[in-house]
Design a protein around this nucleic acid. Structure first.
Length: 96
DNA sequence: CCCGTGACTTTAT
DNA sequence: AATAAAGCCACGG
């Protein structure tokens, strides 16, 4: 298994400062990979110990299975949100 | 070892 | 705007 990939993802996510977010693809790029899905996979399996809510999709939408719960974290962390009809999304300014 | 699955992204139709 | 297809990675069956 590529522990380097897993550890890299965890390290990068853990290194995201409060009030900021990164897209899956961006995280993958930082560790020298191109797999956004791989990042999502790692998050689903090992993300229990990292601020997974700071990792979002390219469009600024939170994880599909956690969009509601994640919002509380963003509000708590002070992450800039944008209200939308039917939901919300993260401000582009929140990306690193 | 092969296949399906999932917290994805990007390009093309 | 919506849908389709291809590329990517770890894991369980």
């Amino acid at each position: 298994m590529n522990e380097e990939f897993v550890e890299g993802v965890l390290a990068v996510v853990d290194g995201i400062p409060p009030g900021r977010v990164m897209s899956y693809g961006q995280v993958a790029a930082v560790i020298g990979s191109r797999s956004a899905r791989g990042v999502g996979r790692v998050m689903a399996l090992y993300g229990s110990d990292v601020p997974w809510w700071r990792v979002v999709r390219a469009g600024g939408h939170p994880p599909t299975c956690h969009e509601a719960s994640a919002r509380e974290h963003y509000v708590e962390e002070g992450t800039p949100l944008i209200e939308t009809p039917g939901g919300y999304r993260l401000s582009p300014a929140a990306f690193l």
